[in-house]
Design a protein around this nucleic acid. Sequence first.
DNA 1: GTCTATACACCGATAGAC
DNA 2: GTCTATCGGTGTATAGAC
Lengths: 198, 198
Amino acid sequence: MLGQPIRNRQTERREATRREVLDAAWAVAREKGLAQLTLRDVASRIGMQAPSLYSYFDSKNAIYDAMFGQAWTDYLALVDKTEPTLPRDPRAALKAIARTFFDYAVADLARNQLMNLRTIPGFEPSAESYAPAVEVLERGRAHLARLGVEDPDEFDLFVALVGGLVDSQQANDPGGQRWARLLDQAMDMFADYVGLPK
Amino acid sequence: MLGQPIRNRQTERREATRREVLDAAWAVAREKGLAQLTLRDVASRIGMQAPSLYSYFDSKNAIYDAMFGQAWTDYLALVDKTEPTLPRDPRAALKAIARTFFDYAVADLARNQLMNLRTIPGFEPSAESYAPAVEVLERGRAHLARLGVEDPDEFDLFVALVGGLVDSQQANDPGGQRWARLLDQAMDMFADYVGLPK
DNA sequence: GTCTATACACCGATAGAC
DNA sequence: GTCTATCGGTGTATAGAC
């Protein structure tokens, strides 16, 4: 994909500043909302003028793109960490997978908007930033197959079900538990339907 | 709520122009996207200057608000029309209700974004525009109760399930059938879980 | 009452000096 | 690499013509 990473003081300084910009962008997004993020806010937070950001990112959407990739990469790391600890029982494993995703999504409204909703007008993730999202989905598909859910339609249904619970929770009861409470029931419903053992 | 409606040539002319503005707004939203709607675009489409719109709406968000109310009122009318034609069989009725909502949501991307997603930064529907949405939900709750689904948790699950299918369809396969195909299966899964007769 | 003309403050983005 | 200055475009407000 990318060539050999160049390691020297210049590129390291540059990467450090890029991270600084992204950290500031996340902070602004969480405080004011993802769509209310402005380059002037991000820049001023790290003592820069807005146009200076263009030395590190090609556009505002490039910043969103990097945030998108970062969020999915972080979640992929979380999946890596939790996958070995999943219960052996298929139903329990299914619930744990769904809960991990649900909690991650609900924990940060701005992040979830970026990752899972198409809420930023004109923003489409680049192939590079989309890669970890695809990888997460592929891991999920493979894992559910190992649990006995092999039909692609059933996996699509699983995705829609968990996503619907997340969206309902965020949209209709932010900060509450109204749909979070229903996640295990929903997983039992799904497990019954696909014929997982009780 | 509102006082006696005043009927005279002036207010009728005014209402007609308000409708003209809204029609133009819908057209722009469908062509360029909901968030890309600009007052200048809306105005020029009906031969006005942008500031003239303020004679009819207090702000851009007031236009969104009127569109929101209009969309839910239209859907409520559709529910009114289709409710008497629903099958007697609970499962078939459940599928028909879900299908009506799904098709309406998927038919118009911009409209669905406005009705069901929180995609416009800073827009919150007014109580007046929200009323038909509440009424639709209440109708659904009552109807499902008549079918035998009386637990509020189960209704919340139903809402999340149908909503998740809509969102997955729009986000991951716009214009396609990948999740639309799964709607009946999903309803069977739900019906099994809540114990509707086969 | 209705619409035009004009203006303001803010946005993302670019050009060019240093 | 960072700055200042500036551009075109946005929502919004208001003065004033008709």
